[in-house]
């Protein structure tokens, strides 16, 4: 029944009524039509469109930029870091070329600062020595040797100083006695490690009749004097002139001859270590005083 109703044709309208309706629509929608025309003009004219939308677009862009700024690290940080890392890796040499002059400047600056400090130290030393017998001695020595006073003071500043002495059993690396100005590390461990280094070097180069005699790093040196069943290691700071080294080696020999001839180190105990340590302290302090 229902479908039948839908299929029925509508009643034909009166043409005069149609005209009337059209006029009415025209009158009623006139304002809308004008508005539509105006909007169409705005949409089709770029300058007009820009005038009306600029403020909205600007505001939205600002918001997006701000959001991007705040969330950039979390959103893009990792891939960007990876790209930078890859770029750095790829252009290592170029980077070095750029950085080398900067490093050079820094090093020059550091060296000139160190020289300045050294000069100040010498001047301080000279001031301290003014009107003292030592100053007269420097003056006299300078006149006598032709070396200027500053160089003589420099020599004095770089004079070797014994920091520690260890008497160590050669094969076991056990400490037989020691003397140290300052306690830096456990002496037993130092003795063991020195022996291990010595054993490694001697073994690695397989020179049966040759033994390690010097370990050097920066301003520190460890002089080693080997004897039959033990060795003496002297840790020094400063420059070691050949004559000082000869004197020191002679002093070590004299110590062994004077203090260790009657010693039996089959069993190493704390009593023996204590006795030897006291003797080292006495003997080498005396040697230092004689310098």
């Amino acid at each position: 029944m229902e479908s039948k109703q839908h299929n029925e044709k509508p009643d034909k309208l009166d043409p005069s009524k149609d005209k009337l309706l059209e006029d009415l629509r025209h009158i009623l929608l006139e304002k809308d039509r004008e508005e539509l025309e105006r909007l169409k003009y705005i949409l089709e004219t770029p300058d007009e469109l820009e005038h009306y939308t600029a403020s909205i677009i600007d505001k939205r862009v600002e918001q997006r930029v701000e959001r991007l700024r705040q969330e950039f690290r979390s959103e893009f940080g990792e891939p960007v870091e990876k790209i930078i890392e890859q770029k750095i890796e790829m252009s290592k040499n170029e980077l070095l070329d750029v950085l080398t002059p900067v490093f050079g400047k820094m090093i020059r600056k550091y060296i000139s600062l160190q020289f300045k400090l050294l000069r100040e130290q010498i001047e301080k030393q000279l001031k301290k020595l003014k009107n003292t017998p030592k100053n007269f001695w420097y003056w006299f020595k300078s006149k006598f040797t032709g070396v200027n006073q500053g160089d003589l003071i420099l020599e004095e500043l770089d004079k070797p100083k014994i920091e520690a002495i260890y008497l160590i059993q050669k094969q076991s690396g056990l400490l037989l006695g020691s003397y140290a100005r300052e306690s830096v590390a456990d002496e037993d461990m130092i003795a063991g490690m020195l022996t291990a280094i010595k054993a490694f070097v001697e073994d690695a180069f397989q020179k049966e009749q040759q033994e390690l005699e010097l370990i050097e790093w920066e301003n520190y040196k460890v002089l080693i004097q080997n004897f039959n069943s033990y060795y003496i290691a002297v840790a020094l700071v400063g420059n070691i002139p050949a004559d000082y080294r000869i004197d020191l080696e002679q002093s070590m020999g004299a110590f062994v001859e004077k203090e260790l001839q009657d010693k039996n180190f089959e069993e190493v105990d704390s009593e023996i270590t204590q006795q030897v340590s006291t003797k080292i302290k006495e003997h080498f302090k005396l040697e230092e005083a004689n310098d």
Binding site: Q169, K170, Q171, S172, G173, L174, D188, M189, G192, A196, A199, F200, E202, D203, A204, S270
Partner: peptide
């Protein structure tokens, strides 16, 4: 008793370890 202990790097065979390390060992 003071034990001075040497922990040496492992080698598949002992003859690869410097002989001098074993000298004076208790």
């Amino acid at each position: 008793l003071t034990l001075i202990i040497w922990d040496i790097a492992g080698e598949v065979k002992q003859d690869k370890v410097p002989t001098a390390y074993f000298m004076g060992t208790h």
